[in-house]
Design a protein around this nucleic acid. Structure first.
Lengths: 214, 214
DNA sequence: GTCTATAGAAGGATAGAC
DNA sequence: GTCTATCCTTCTATAGAC
């Protein structure tokens, strides 16, 4: 669906929901995401960002009041998109706690693989946000994590999962499995996002399974 | 064992094996680890590092030829220490594949929690290393990961673990569980490194268990 | 080995022409 | 909205006194 042509009009492969921006803003955000992912916020200059979008250094400030606000826009977009994907996965079709949890882990893992450039920025550069922006992002993260905790708790409560599970810790582990891949995932590797999602979902079901059950 | 007194002589709580350095180098490295962990390599100035050690900006260059080499020293120390801990855990006592894998995951998790400030730098700031230093660190990481792959394979081969396991992917998942905690672990939280290690080791055994077995 | 002082380069952000 | 030019700050690293 997305074309790699980010010079003209295509929605680039590092920015979901890029349609919400004008073409120049979009090019700047795409350039910023790539720069931040490669060198971190503090390792990226405003000249890098503008240059990557084919603009002069000053042009950045026509579209964003500061480098930090460009980062905030990116991080907000990424977190919002991840949240939306989980909500959609949760609503998808009627199913029991196992299927539902597997769908969530699958979707969350696929998200981090498919948008790994953006996801990397969302995980590694949070500390560069100003305190008020950081707090706002943390709120979204909390809601996202809560989806997993509720999904694990549902299976524990109705007896589908191991009743002895520590819900918060298990949910945290599932989130770790999905997120940590931004540290090592490369799109030219042997695994597709779909394969990674399916495998991680399998692991999730192993983690919550009843001891003797199958 | 370590005292929080890093002004005079104590081995500080962010630098294992600090005895290998002189007192001033040690103070500089401790300051650098804390700064890098808090703000990243590019977000840290040489003044921050020197100031944190109670020295003038120029003093850093008496002990390290550049900021990057101070980072390299830190990252090398952290990776070496993690590797040593795994080798020690692997050698500890006679046991089957399950006990051995649990011991590895336990030790690796405890390491990342106990030395979370250092571990954070080792995970987040690798990209700031010069290429030749980065390559060297990658070699150590490969050896570390190999320990987990061998431990998983041993249990698969002798039938203790699920024979259908994908060894590389499962080992990678176990490593993810241990490493990802540097992203969220805080020492003032409700869990001790020991509790985290024990819990993650439990999860590891669930991941490798035979489908029907207990 | 530590300091003060500073060189020399690069960074974030702005001014003003077009 | 984009450009060139530049302000002013901050940065890494060095010079030279003590």
């Amino acid at each position: 669906m997305p074309t790699p042509d980010d010079t003209t009009a295509g929605a680039p492969d590092v920015l979901p929901g890029a349609d919400a921006y004008g073409p120049v803003q979009r090019r700047l955000l795409v350039s910023a995401v790539r720069c931040f992912a490669a060198n971190g916020f503090h390792g990226t200059t405003t000249r890098d960002i503008a240059g990557g979008a084919g603009l002069s250094p000053a042009a950045l400030y026509v579209h964003f009041p500061s480098k930090e606000l460009a980062l905030y826009e990116i991080v907000r977009l990424g977190h919002r998109h991840a949240y939306d994907i989980l909500v959609a996965a949760r609503a998808d079709g009627p199913s029991g706690p196992g299927e539902r949890l597997a769908a969530l882990v699958d979707a969350y893992t696929r998200f981090h693989a498919q948008w790994h450039v953006l996801a990397r920025v969302c995980q590694y550069d949070l500390g560069a946000l100003r305190p008020e922006h950081y707090e706002e992002v943390l709120r979204t993260r909390h809601e996202t994590n809560e989806i997993f905790r509720v999904a694990v708790a549902a299976g524990v409560d109705d007896g589908t999962f191991d009743p002895g599970l520590d819900v918060r810790r298990v949910a945290r582990a599932l989130i770790s499995l999905a997120i940590d891949l931004v540290r090592w995932y490369r799109p030219d590797g042997p695994e597709t996002p779909e394969q990674l999602g399916a495998f991680t979902a399998q692991l999730a079901l192993r983690l919550v399974a009843r001891p003797g059950g199958r």
